[in-house]
Each structure stands twice: as structure tokens, then as C-alpha cells.
Write a protein that binds this DNA or RNA. Structure first.
Length: 278
DNA sequence: ATGCCCCCGTCCCGGGGA
């Protein structure tokens, strides 16, 4: 005897919110790629890193004219982060709290459709050991503190960006070759997992616990053609966001274009159980 | 062991990236 299909009625209207992160290695040099990807992907919130432009020079109007909301935290030449959203952006914080003397534009955070999102460009830290590695670890400790603060609000939180951490050897094409690097050192990995064990889910590993998934391929030595990649761009989800995770993936398309960024987007889809989105 | 490649600045090299 055939059983009738099970119908699950959700208590509230629901929709999906698609959040992506992309280190574009210069917003100006990648403007066409960004525009094309926004149009083609159906993304709702795009977290950008390494825009390499001052806040006032970011091509904000180009996106606003197409109906996007934009928040930017930039600086001259280096670093710089931004958020491009289909929904209004509220309550913006520029700069990672915890060090008023830190002038590097590596963090922007905002509320979008009931979800708290952050675009993160974590310091590289090479050469290690050294002052740049110390800066990286101090920055990660501040990020941990901020991540804990954000849990108190009990809202969905997405910490997305270029973390410059290769969490496990499986996330690297050549672990011995990367031994001792600031991206694989035990201190960097410990700081990354401290955030995770503090209550955040690595979205990609939550749904794909095994296998190699890369988000970055060096420009040099044919790394892309040889698939010599590493996984350093991550989406970390608070419990409220993790509970609603339905899909996650890496879009390798943009890395194969002409004049690409050396990173490619990582995205996730969250089920929205309220009326904010969609 | 080093550099390959790419982007920025007021610029034809050097710093930074990872």
C-alpha cells in the first residue's frame, strides 16, 4: 500500500537568503566580473574583500543604479571590504572592534534582513614568525571576542571572508610544501577553530565533511590549471544561521575567466523563517 | 632556495599578496 506524501507546513512564510563571499583582488580591476556575477548568480548578499580602493572611490553608484544597497570600508591601495545587498543595509560597523589604533580596513559588519553579516579580510601573517604573524594572531583574538559578542543577540550571524587560514591539510594541495606558512601554522589553525568551537559552524565542512574544496589558486606556476589550490575563504555560521543552512558551494567559474581574481566566490543558502527576505 | 603573476601608486620600480 502506498503511503500518502508527507507535507511539512512551515510555521511562517519562508524564503532563501543566498550569501556569498569573494576576495576580488581590486574592485576596479574586477568590476565587470563582479557585475556579471551579481546578475547571473542570484546572490542576495555579497561580501567583498581586497577592494583596494578608498571608500569614496569604490564604484558604489554603479551598483546602486541597479538597485543594490552598498556599504564600504576602504583605504588607499590595500585591503578594503564591502557589502553589496539586495536588501537594505542597517547598523553598519566599520573596523573590527578591540583596537582603536588598527587602521587597516579589514572588517565591515551590518544587519541585513534580520541576519548579521560581516565581511572579513584577515591578515595574511607571513613571514612567520614575525610582527606580521603577531598582528594576525592578535587580530584573530579580537575576531573571536567579537564573534562571542555577536552570539549574545541570538540572531543568525554569517562571518564570511578571506580568513587566510587553511583549516586542515585536506584543504591544501600540498601540505608539506605549506608547512610553516602563516596560513597553515598551528597557531592560526587553533585561532580559527577557537572561533568554531565557540559556537560557529564552518558551512562548507558542515555539508561536505570530506573531499578537497579550494577557493584560491595562485596566479603563478599554472596553479589554476594544475588545481594547486587552497581553501582559505570561509563562511562561519552562528547556531541560528547554521540551523537554517540548506546549501553551500564554491563557484569556480569566475576563476577561469580572463583577468580573474586569484580567489573565487563561496556561497551558502539560509532558510529565512520570517518575512524579512524575499 | 628563489621566482613565476598580478595590483596599486602618481609610476617604469617596489611593496604586498598567499
Amino acid at each position: 500500500m502506498q503511503l500518502p506524501p508527507v507535507v511539512v507546513a512551515l510555521p511562517f512564510p519562508s524564503s532563501l537568503m543566498r550569501v556569498a563571499s569573494w576576495n576580488v583582488n581590486s574592485a576596479k580591476a574586477r568590476l565587470d566580473h563582479i557585475n556579471d556575477w551579481l546578475a547571473a548568480d542570484g546572490v542576495d548578499v555579497l561580501l567583498l574583500q581586497e577592494i583596494k580602493s578608498q571608500t569614496e572611490n569604490f564604484p558604489r553608484d554603479l551598483f546602486v543604479e541597479q538597485g543594490w544597497y552598498v556599504a564600504v570600508h576602504g583605504q588607499k591601495s590595500y585591503n578594503g571590504v564591502a557589502i553589496i545587498s539586495r536588501y537594505p543595509i542597517e547598523d553598519v560597523i566599520c573596523g573590527l572592534p578591540g583596537d582603536p589604533y588598527d587602521e587597516q580596513a579589514r572588517y565591515i559588519e551590518a544587519m541585513i534582513a534580520g541576519t548579521r553579516v560581516a565581511s572579513i579580510y584577515l591578515p595574511n601573517g607571513n613571514p612567520a614568525p614575525g610582527p606580521k604573524f603577531d598582528y594576525k594572531l592578535a587580530w584573530m583574538e579580537r575576531l573571536y571576542a567579537r564573534s562571542q559578542q555577536l552570539l549574545e543577540d541570538e540572531v543568525p550571524v554569517v562571518l564570511g571572508g578571506d580568513f587566510n587560514v587553511i583549516p586542515q591539510d585536506i584543504d591544501c594541495y600540498d601540505p608539506p610544501g605549506w608547512a610553516g606558512d602563516a596560513l597553515t601554522r598551528i597557531e592560526s589553525r587553533a585561532a580559527f577553530f577557537k572561533i568554531c568551537y565557540g559556537g560557529y559552524m564552518d558551512a562548507l565542512r558542515a555539508l561536505h565533511p570530506d573531499g578537497a574544496y579550494y577557493t584560491y589558486w595562485d596566479y603563478q606556476a599554472g596553479a589554476w590549471q594544475r588545481d594547486n589550490g587552497v581553501r582559505i575563504d570561509h563562511l562561519l555560521l552562528s547556531p541560528e544561521a547554521g540551523d537554517s543552512l540548506v546549501a553551500v558551494g564554491i563557484d569556480k567559474g569566475p576563476r577561469g575567466l580572463e583577468k580573474p581574481s586569484d580567489h573565487t566566490p563561496i556561497w551558502c543558502e539560509l532558510l529565512q523563517r520570517d518575512s524579512h527576505a524575499g
